[in-house]
Nucleic acid binder design. Sequence first.
DNA 1: CTCCCGGTGA
DNA 2: TCACCTGGAG
Length: 227
Amino acid sequence: MKQGRHRISLSDLPGLMEVYSSLRERFGHRDWWPGDTPFEIIVGAILTQNTAWKNVEKAIANLKREKVLSVAAMRRIPQDHLAELIRSSGYFNQKAIKLKAFISFLDEHYSGSIAKMAKAPLETLRHHLLEVKGIGPETADSILLYALNKPIFVIDAYTKRLLQRHHYFDKEPTYHEAQEFFERNLPANLDLFNDYHAQIVAVGHHYCKPKPRCEGCPLEHLPHRSE
DNA sequence: CTCCCGGTGA
DNA sequence: TCACCTGGAG
């Protein structure tokens, strides 16, 4: 680890593309965010808020079994019934409201059509999505990238932690700071943005946890704090 | 900052 | 038992 009297500066650190290569070499290309339709991915993005994906899978399965995983069906189903189906994802009452809020948003702005929505420009879409109650920056960007194939870099808790622990930031960056950092230092490539976020989630899940487990981490060789 | 809330794995 | 989970609102 490169150290001296001086604080580690950006120029001492590997570029983001090298970081990506190290992760990718370890984890392989991730088949991130499986989903049969864009709508299923959007629903997953809302349900997975502060919730382990495992618990979301059950909820999605319930929605499929009850044939509620379409815009029309979700518009029709009563909110309390919807809440029961997604119980396993936690915060089920709030999330039922959020799903309904998204449907209303879709109806108002895009005549209830995901396809029409997908044609809107990224910035317009992001601005509109953030107006929806229950959709914050991470959920909005996940929808944009994974459901609508817009080239935007998704930031999550793992990402901010990684940037701080590996000295790209002194303190934990804000969402916008982290996003700007990635987008300024990487080509705006859809598959790269897609897979990079997936790689970060993988390293965050296995190594860069709240309590770091640096042994064997694919990024162990680059400067880091193990706190 | 606190609250929302269920499941999972250590 | 308990921390954590592919956050967001008030």
